[in-house]
Amino acid sequence: MNTIKGIKILLVDDEPHILQFLELGLRSEGFEVESASDGINAVQMADLFNPHIIILDIMMPGIDGVEVCRQLKQNGNDAAIIMLTAKDEVSDRIRGLTTGADDYMIKPFSFEELLARIQARLRNQFPNLFGEITLGPFGIDDRKREITYLGQALTLSPTEYDLLKLLVIKHGTVMSKSKILNIVWDYDFGGEDNIVEVYIRSLREKLRDKEHVIIRTLRGAGYRVDLP
Protein backbone atom coordinates (compact mmCIF):
# COMPACT_ATOMS: atom_id res chain seq x y z
CA MET A 1 0.00 0.00 0.00
CA ASN A 2 1.30 3.46 -0.89
CA THR A 3 1.13 5.33 2.40
CA ILE A 4 0.68 9.08 2.37
CA LYS A 5 2.95 10.93 4.76
CA GLY A 6 1.22 12.42 7.79
CA ILE A 7 -1.70 10.01 8.13
CA LYS A 8 -2.51 9.53 11.81
CA ILE A 9 -4.05 6.39 13.29
CA LEU A 10 -5.30 6.00 16.87
CA LEU A 11 -5.46 2.44 18.24
CA VAL A 12 -7.83 1.68 21.09
CA ASP A 13 -7.73 -1.78 22.69
CA ASP A 14 -7.30 -3.13 26.21
CA GLU A 15 -5.19 -6.08 25.03
CA PRO A 16 -1.48 -5.06 25.11
CA HIS A 17 -0.34 -7.70 22.61
CA ILE A 18 -2.85 -6.46 20.00
CA LEU A 19 -1.77 -2.84 20.50
CA GLN A 20 1.89 -3.80 20.14
CA PHE A 21 1.25 -5.89 17.03
CA LEU A 22 -0.75 -3.14 15.32
CA GLU A 23 1.63 -0.36 16.39
CA LEU A 24 4.64 -2.14 14.90
CA GLY A 25 2.84 -3.07 11.70
CA LEU A 26 1.28 0.32 11.04
CA ARG A 27 4.42 2.28 11.85
CA SER A 28 6.37 0.08 9.46
CA GLU A 29 3.83 1.11 6.80
CA GLY A 30 4.64 4.76 7.44
CA PHE A 31 1.66 5.81 9.58
CA GLU A 32 1.85 8.04 12.66
CA VAL A 33 0.42 5.91 15.45
CA GLU A 34 -0.77 6.57 18.99
CA SER A 35 -2.62 4.16 21.26
CA ALA A 36 -5.00 4.09 24.21
CA SER A 37 -5.93 1.13 26.38
CA ASP A 38 -9.30 2.36 27.64
CA GLY A 39 -12.26 4.46 26.56
CA ILE A 40 -11.59 7.55 28.66
CA ASN A 41 -8.04 7.92 27.36
CA ALA A 42 -9.28 7.22 23.83
CA VAL A 43 -11.65 10.21 23.86
CA GLN A 44 -8.93 12.48 25.26
CA MET A 45 -6.30 11.20 22.84
CA ALA A 46 -8.61 11.63 19.85
CA ASP A 47 -9.03 15.30 20.75
CA LEU A 48 -5.28 15.87 21.15
CA PHE A 49 -3.95 13.66 18.34
CA ASN A 50 -6.65 14.46 15.76
CA PRO A 51 -6.33 11.13 13.89
CA HIS A 52 -7.61 10.34 10.40
CA ILE A 53 -8.42 6.74 11.40
CA ILE A 54 -9.46 5.27 14.76
CA ILE A 55 -9.26 1.50 15.17
CA LEU A 56 -11.56 0.89 18.12
CA ASP A 57 -12.22 -2.30 20.05
CA ILE A 58 -15.84 -2.74 21.16
CA MET A 59 -15.30 -4.92 24.23
CA MET A 60 -13.41 -2.85 26.80
CA PRO A 61 -13.89 -2.42 30.56
CA GLY A 62 -15.47 0.82 31.75
CA ILE A 63 -16.49 2.80 28.69
CA ASP A 64 -16.89 0.34 25.83
CA GLY A 65 -16.13 1.06 22.18
CA VAL A 66 -19.72 1.88 21.27
CA GLU A 67 -19.89 4.61 23.92
CA VAL A 68 -16.47 5.93 22.85
CA CYS A 69 -17.73 6.11 19.28
CA ARG A 70 -20.88 7.93 20.39
CA GLN A 71 -18.88 10.51 22.37
CA LEU A 72 -16.43 11.08 19.51
CA LYS A 73 -19.21 11.73 17.01
CA GLN A 74 -21.04 13.94 19.51
CA ASN A 75 -17.84 15.98 19.88
CA GLY A 76 -17.70 16.47 16.12
CA ASN A 77 -14.69 14.21 15.52
CA ASP A 78 -14.55 13.38 11.80
CA ALA A 79 -12.09 10.47 11.99
CA ALA A 80 -13.04 7.28 10.20
CA ILE A 81 -13.78 4.66 12.84
CA ILE A 82 -13.09 0.97 12.22
CA MET A 83 -14.51 -1.12 15.05
CA LEU A 84 -13.03 -4.41 16.20
CA THR A 85 -15.11 -7.13 17.78
CA ALA A 86 -14.37 -10.66 18.92
CA LYS A 87 -18.02 -11.56 18.48
CA ASP A 88 -19.44 -12.51 15.11
CA GLU A 89 -22.83 -11.15 16.08
CA VAL A 90 -25.09 -8.93 14.00
CA SER A 91 -26.15 -6.99 17.10
CA ASP A 92 -22.58 -5.82 17.76
CA ARG A 93 -22.17 -4.62 14.20
CA ILE A 94 -25.51 -2.80 14.25
CA ARG A 95 -24.71 -1.07 17.56
CA GLY A 96 -21.39 0.14 16.25
CA LEU A 97 -22.57 1.26 12.84
CA THR A 98 -25.67 3.03 14.11
CA THR A 99 -23.55 4.92 16.63
CA GLY A 100 -21.38 6.31 13.87
CA ALA A 101 -18.70 3.71 13.09
CA ASP A 102 -17.70 3.55 9.42
CA ASP A 103 -16.59 -0.09 9.23
CA TYR A 104 -16.00 -3.13 11.41
CA MET A 105 -13.68 -6.13 11.54
CA ILE A 106 -14.08 -9.38 13.43
CA LYS A 107 -11.16 -10.73 15.46
CA PRO A 108 -8.98 -12.48 14.47
CA PHE A 109 -8.25 -10.61 11.24
CA SER A 110 -5.34 -10.39 8.82
CA PHE A 111 -3.11 -7.33 8.87
CA GLU A 112 -3.40 -7.13 5.07
CA GLU A 113 -7.18 -6.85 5.33
CA LEU A 114 -6.86 -4.10 7.92
CA LEU A 115 -4.56 -2.15 5.59
CA ALA A 116 -7.09 -2.52 2.79
CA ARG A 117 -9.89 -1.25 5.06
CA ILE A 118 -7.76 1.72 6.14
CA GLN A 119 -7.02 2.60 2.52
CA ALA A 120 -10.71 2.40 1.63
CA ARG A 121 -11.75 4.66 4.50
CA LEU A 122 -9.05 7.21 3.66
CA ARG A 123 -10.10 7.40 0.02
CA ASN A 124 -13.75 7.64 0.97
CA GLN A 125 -13.54 10.20 3.78
CA PHE A 126 -10.30 12.09 3.10
CA PRO A 127 -10.04 12.33 -0.69
CA ASN A 128 -8.08 15.57 -0.39
CA LEU A 129 -5.16 13.49 0.82
CA PHE A 130 -5.05 11.84 -2.58
CA GLY A 131 -5.76 14.93 -4.68
CA GLU A 132 -8.38 13.26 -6.89
CA ILE A 133 -11.01 10.61 -6.27
CA THR A 134 -13.89 9.06 -8.18
CA LEU A 135 -17.11 8.14 -6.39
CA GLY A 136 -19.79 6.75 -8.71
CA PRO A 137 -20.53 9.36 -11.41
CA PHE A 138 -18.69 12.07 -9.45
CA GLY A 139 -15.04 13.05 -9.68
CA ILE A 140 -13.54 15.24 -6.95
CA ASP A 141 -10.22 17.00 -7.51
CA ASP A 142 -9.16 19.03 -4.48
CA ARG A 143 -6.09 20.36 -6.26
CA LYS A 144 -8.30 22.13 -8.78
CA ARG A 145 -11.28 22.39 -6.41
CA GLU A 146 -13.31 20.88 -9.22
CA ILE A 147 -16.15 18.37 -9.22
CA THR A 148 -17.24 16.54 -12.34
CA TYR A 149 -20.51 14.72 -12.87
CA LEU A 150 -20.71 12.11 -15.62
CA GLY A 151 -17.41 13.44 -16.92
CA GLN A 152 -18.54 17.07 -17.15
CA ALA A 153 -17.02 19.74 -14.90
CA LEU A 154 -19.58 21.63 -12.81
CA THR A 155 -19.34 25.40 -12.39
CA LEU A 156 -19.48 25.78 -8.63
CA SER A 157 -18.92 28.56 -6.15
CA PRO A 158 -16.50 27.76 -3.29
CA THR A 159 -19.40 27.04 -0.93
CA GLU A 160 -21.22 24.91 -3.50
CA TYR A 161 -18.02 22.92 -3.99
CA ASP A 162 -17.65 22.30 -0.26
CA LEU A 163 -21.31 21.33 0.13
CA LEU A 164 -21.45 18.95 -2.83
CA LYS A 165 -18.12 17.40 -1.85
CA LEU A 166 -19.44 16.77 1.67
CA LEU A 167 -22.64 15.13 0.40
CA VAL A 168 -20.79 12.96 -2.12
CA ILE A 169 -18.09 11.84 0.30
CA LYS A 170 -20.73 11.04 2.92
CA HIS A 171 -22.89 9.26 0.32
CA GLY A 172 -25.48 6.97 1.84
CA THR A 173 -25.48 9.04 5.05
CA VAL A 174 -28.21 11.53 5.90
CA MET A 175 -26.69 14.94 6.58
CA SER A 176 -28.88 17.23 8.69
CA LYS A 177 -29.00 20.98 8.09
CA SER A 178 -27.28 21.63 11.41
CA LYS A 179 -24.45 19.21 10.60
CA ILE A 180 -24.02 20.74 7.15
CA LEU A 181 -23.90 24.24 8.66
CA ASN A 182 -21.29 23.14 11.21
CA ILE A 183 -19.04 21.60 8.56
CA VAL A 184 -19.49 23.83 5.50
CA TRP A 185 -20.25 27.18 7.13
CA ASP A 186 -18.32 26.48 10.35
CA TYR A 187 -19.59 26.76 13.90
CA ASP A 188 -19.48 30.56 13.93
CA PHE A 189 -22.15 30.90 11.24
CA GLY A 190 -24.89 33.10 12.64
CA GLY A 191 -27.40 33.05 9.80
CA GLU A 192 -30.54 31.03 9.20
CA ASP A 193 -30.40 27.33 8.37
CA ASN A 194 -32.53 27.89 5.25
CA ILE A 195 -29.29 28.95 3.53
CA VAL A 196 -28.68 25.21 3.13
CA GLU A 197 -31.92 24.88 1.14
CA VAL A 198 -30.84 27.71 -1.15
CA TYR A 199 -27.53 26.02 -1.95
CA ILE A 200 -29.14 22.58 -2.35
CA ARG A 201 -31.55 24.11 -4.87
CA SER A 202 -28.65 25.63 -6.79
CA LEU A 203 -26.74 22.33 -6.85
CA ARG A 204 -29.80 20.48 -8.12
CA GLU A 205 -30.14 22.96 -10.97
CA LYS A 206 -26.51 22.48 -11.96
CA LEU A 207 -26.87 18.70 -11.75
CA ARG A 208 -30.21 18.87 -13.66
CA ASP A 209 -31.70 17.00 -10.75
CA LYS A 210 -35.33 18.08 -11.17
CA GLU A 211 -36.66 14.87 -9.63
CA HIS A 212 -34.31 15.08 -6.62
CA VAL A 213 -32.91 11.62 -7.29
CA ILE A 214 -29.25 12.68 -7.02
CA ILE A 215 -29.58 14.81 -3.89
CA ARG A 216 -32.48 13.33 -1.96
CA THR A 217 -34.47 15.13 0.70
CA LEU A 218 -35.45 13.11 3.75
CA ARG A 219 -38.19 15.19 5.30
CA GLY A 220 -37.33 16.20 8.84
CA ALA A 221 -33.89 14.56 8.67
CA GLY A 222 -31.76 16.21 5.99
CA TYR A 223 -30.17 15.37 2.64
CA ARG A 224 -28.49 12.29 1.20
CA VAL A 225 -26.63 11.38 -1.96
CA ASP A 226 -26.95 7.75 -3.05
CA LEU A 227 -24.32 6.38 -5.42
CA PRO A 228 -24.70 3.31 -7.63
Rank of each mutant, 00 (worst) to 15 (best):
Q20V: 09
N2H: 12
Q125T: 08
I215Y: 01
L56H: 00
S176T: 10
K5G: 12
T148G: 10
V168E: 01
I54R: 01
D64W: 07
L156H: 02
W185R: 05
N128E: 15
I63T: 12
P137G: 04
R27C: 11
I106L: 10
D162T: 07
A120S: 05
D141T: 13
L84G: 04
T98V: 06
D226E: 07
A42Q: 05
D78Y: 11
M60Y: 01
Y199W: 08
L218A: 06
G136K: 04
I183W: 07
K210D: 12
T85H: 04
V196T: 07
G65H: 09
R27Q: 12
G136M: 02
G151E: 05
G39T: 06
Q71M: 14
G222S: 00
M59W: 09
A101G: 08
G220Y: 02
G96E: 07
D102H: 01
L227W: 03
I118T: 03
G39V: 01
G25P: 04
M105Q: 01
I7G: 08
F109V: 03
L129C: 05
R95W: 09
H212E: 11
E34T: 07
K179R: 15
E34A: 15
G139N: 12
I215M: 06
P108L: 08
R93N: 07
P108S: 07
K210V: 06
N2P: 14
A42P: 08
R121A: 13
L19R: 02
L22K: 07
K165P: 06
E146N: 15
G96F: 00
A79M: 00
L163H: 08
P127N: 08
